[in-house]
Simulated assay, not measured.
Amino acid sequence: MVGSMTPLPLLSKLRVYVSHANFRVRAKAAISISNCVSKMGLEGMKEFGLVELVQMSADLLKDRLPEAREAARSVVISIYEVFTESEEQKQEAWQSFCQSNLSPIHAQSMFKIIPSL
């Protein structure tokens, strides 16, 4: 997003709250992260850490609160959309990315979120 303020400083501050002991704090952080990521392009995601975003989302997908899980799904969809934007074989590119950066169980949970997989 040219001309708009980057959400990277906010994301960096929120990162620590994703693993907070209080599930409500985790959920609020997940929702805020989801809002930030939805406004980012691929370059912004890469600058923050694309792999870190995916790993954070994978952890949040199994959170206790549905708000955190839904926010994680939203982050995954946002990442998928910008990551595969210029890919000819979207599903294969996404599968390959997830399998190389996540545990098999987490990669599987990522595939389930994207309906076309």
Score class of each variant (00 low, 15 high):
32 S>T: 02
70 E>W: 01
102 L>C: 05
24 R>L: 06
35 N>E: 06
69 R>C: 08
26 R>H: 02
95 Q>K: 07
64 R>S: 05
101 N>D: 13
28 K>M: 14
95 Q>C: 04
81 E>V: 03
36 C>G: 01
69 R>E: 02
65 L>H: 09
112 K>L: 03
74 S>T: 08
101 N>R: 08
87 E>Q: 01
20 H>I: 01
109 S>L: 03
18 V>R: 11
107 A>W: 02
11 L>K: 02
66 P>I: 00
16 V>W: 05
74 S>Q: 12
105 I>A: 00
81 E>M: 06
55 Q>T: 11
26 R>K: 05
25 V>Y: 06
2 V>F: 06
65 L>Q: 11
32 S>L: 08
20 H>N: 14
10 L>I: 14
85 E>L: 15
35 N>M: 01
29 A>C: 03
54 V>K: 12
66 P>E: 07
99 Q>N: 13
107 A>Y: 12
31 I>L: 15
87 E>C: 10
64 R>C: 05
23 F>P: 14
9 P>I: 12
17 Y>C: 15
59 D>P: 12
51 V>F: 10
46 K>Y: 14
55 Q>P: 00
88 E>M: 11
36 C>N: 05
5 M>E: 00
49 G>P: 01
29 A>K: 10
101 N>V: 11
86 S>E: 14
54 V>C: 00
80 Y>K: 07
82 V>K: 00
105 I>Q: 02
3 G>M: 07
31 I>D: 14
104 P>E: 12
6 T>I: 12
104 P>G: 06
25 V>N: 08
18 V>S: 12
100 S>D: 04
87 E>P: 05
73 R>N: 10
93 A>L: 13
53 L>Y: 15
86 S>F: 10
72 A>Y: 11
76 V>Q: 07
73 R>L: 09
116 S>I: 02
35 N>H: 04
100 S>P: 00
